[in-house]
Amino acid sequence: MKSSQDIFELFSEIPDPEIPVISIVELGVIRFIEVLDEISIQIIITPTYSGCPAMKQIEDDVRKKLIEHGFSVIDIKTIFSPPWTTDWITQETKEKLRKYGIAPPEETTQDKSWLLGIEKKITCPRCKSLNTKLISQFGSTACKALHQCQACLEPFDYFKCI
């Protein structure tokens, strides 16, 4: 019988539908796996954002992968607590995002300085300049904001810190 660790490894092969350089495990949406027997498994996932359209895709991909590996009784549940946070994204994964052209979250959610109007300087993923500005709190997907580098003039996505 496969262990839950084996299943986590299988899921590491499933790319995030919107950011294909990272896996759904690296994204942190797979919260819990329990292998019940050779064919039965329970999976608990949590959404990144309430309305994230990729969640359905992720669920379908997970189901497909499990069917390929012999599971036929697949129970996938969604939970909201604890809510997904960018704090779960590891340094290694952040580096992958940066190489892909997305500035990774630079703050932690423990840092509330933005409430006082202090904006963190975001590093340009292309030229590493700190001379960047926020264009919009909202970007091409729910999890990103839009910034622009004042040095190389390139616009870029910033993975919002929530």
Binding site: S50, G51, P53, S136, F138
Partner: peptide
């Protein structure tokens, strides 16, 4: 894009 993102969160909830 911003308002559509907000709409998406609200509809998701």
């Amino acid at each position: 894009l911003a308002l559509t993102n907000i709409t998406l969160d609200i509809t998701g909830a």
